[in-house]
């Protein structure tokens, strides 16, 4: 059955001879007005507080610092994560913003291997440099799953294989939702989908102005910045706390496929 037949069949069932070509008028636009109004009344400070409450309720870690002390705050948050589990290798979005917060230097100071998410990092010579750095740290073994996976995986890009071995991913969310404790992370170019997914820990760094009250405001911002969604990147993820499952006897397990420990640094 081709598309035309498929759509015509639907149209006929709905009482039209052929598929509707003009957008139908709608009597609604998203969330109830009372909710839109109520959430719209929240000020910046209230939003920051609401995000922190929602985020910590999901076991998220959080730190607030003035933007002038971004590097110190990131460093303190990383130190906190080190206490939670093995942390030697870090992948981070190679965006000017994260650079400006001093992420590469912080990683260096903390004697961590930093993998920037970039084309050059996927070149073979970069991989050699990375290998050398690992050997220095005495942790040159590949990730467990990566080692067990067959040649199909070995043929994938060095960058992807490197991320699989990282313990922490650092991202800059596009926006943050206060009432659900949610990071809205766009993935494109210098910030890959894997960065906020493959490592066992996640750190998000963002200025307080990125925090909005509800999900719909994220979409409003994206409409404005991405041509009414026409130029939206191929991947937008809303991340609300750590990866979890209750599939074994309803017992909550944290950190199944995605990061089990999530942390945020809010810059004011």
């Amino acid at each position: 059955m081709n598309e035309q037949q498929f759509l015509t069949q639907i149209a006929v069932r709905l009482g039209r001879a052929k598929p509707l070509q003009q957008p139908p008028a709608t009597m609604f636009n998203g969330v109830p007005d009372s909710y839109r109004k109520r959430m719209g009344q929240l000020g910046q400070e209230e939003c920051v507080q609401l995000f922190m409450d929602s985020w910590t309720a999901l076991t998220g870690l959080v730190r607030v610092a003035p933007v002038s002390q971004a590097a110190e705050a990131i460093s303190a948050s990383i130190a906190e994560l080190k206490e939670r589990g093995m942390l030697e290798r870090v992948v981070y979005a190679k965006t000017p913003e994260l650079q400006s917060y001093g992420v590469p230097q912080v990683l260096h100071e903390q004697r961590l291997v930093g993998v920037p998410w970039s084309e050059s990092a996927s070149a073979a010579d970069e991989e050699d440099a990375w290998k050398a750095a690992l050997e220095q740290l005495g942790t040159s073994e590949p990730g467990e799953a990566g080692a067990l996976a067959g040649e199909k995986w070995q043929a994938r890009s060095p960058l992807l294989r490197a991320v699989e071995r990282c313990h922490l991913g650092i991202v800059v969310p596009e926006a943050v939702v206060a009432n659900t404790g949610t990071l809205a992370v766009l993935s494109a170019g210098a910030q890959g989908r894997s960065v906020s997914l493959m490592p066992g820990m996640l750190l998000a760094v963002f200025p307080a102005e990125r925090i909005v009250a509800r999900m719909g405001e994220v979409f409003e911002r994206l409409r404005a910045s991405h041509g009414e969604m026409a130029s939206l990147p191929s991947s937008l993820n809303l991340i609300t706390g750590p990866s979890r499952s209750a599939d074994i006897e309803n017992d909550l397990t944290i950190g199944i496929h995605g990061p089990g420990i999530v942390s945020a640094v809010i810059l004011t």
Binding site: L232, P233, N237, L238
Partner: peptide, 24 residues
């Protein structure tokens, strides 16, 4: 479904990876 405010991951996927994307 579960009483959560929001599911942990909500992924919006718009097309395949685009020029300059290194995964996906």
């Amino acid at each position: 479904a579960t009483g959560q405010k929001l599911t942990t991951y909500t992924s919006f996927i718009t097309g395949p990876r685009q020029e300059g994307d290194l995964d996906g």
